[in-house]
Amino acid sequence: MRDLAVLLEGRNLARLFEGLWVTLRLSLSSVLLSIVLGIIVGMFMTLKNPVTRAVSRAYLEFVRIMPQLVLLFLAYFGLTRVFGLNLSGETSAVLVFTVWGTAEMGDLVRGAVTSIPRYQYDSAYALGLTKIQAYIFVIIPQTLRRLVPPAINLTTRMIKTTSLVVLIGVVEVLKVGQQIIEANRYNAPGAALWIYIVIFFLYFLICFPISRFGQLLENKWRD
């Protein structure tokens, strides 16, 4: 128990939360960018043009098949070499998670838009709605219902994946945990266990309510 008390000494607990905030800031900015860009890319993916189809397909497949850590390495180590761009760990992280999130979000948008049956459009026009009215009152509300639960799911995936940034040198919650463990290795040699348990539950406490909320909406809106 003395090992757990390390967290209460000095600013240790505050620093751990600051580290957690770095993780959350990175994932939330990536999620927001992914949602905006994903909607645009998703619309682009629904086009019937074979060229745009091939391009978006190749982008989606490449990003999906590569582990996110590989993409992080490509951005962090590769871009510097190829373009002379010297990105910080945090910038590479937001870049990579946005590129990945946009692909996932784009595919969700494409799926949601194409899953709206043809007759929904036809009926809307038959009722005398203009094209814009049909979208605002008929198509978009239905698309959103199919889109929001998986988008929330993507958010928790993003938060969990953000833990990888510690491997490209970003000081986030895991790194702060390591620093606290290192600094106290003589007066609290067993701190590692407790600190990693605390970090484990911090992630759980953030992701669990979000995924619960997503499930709730999914059950409520099931058609």
Partner: peptide
Amino acid sequence: IELSRNTPLLVQLFLLYFGLPKI
């Protein structure tokens, strides 16, 4: 299921590899 799905693998590994030796 809830614990496993709502935590990252990296944190699970750190707990197993660096945490458990302490006990």
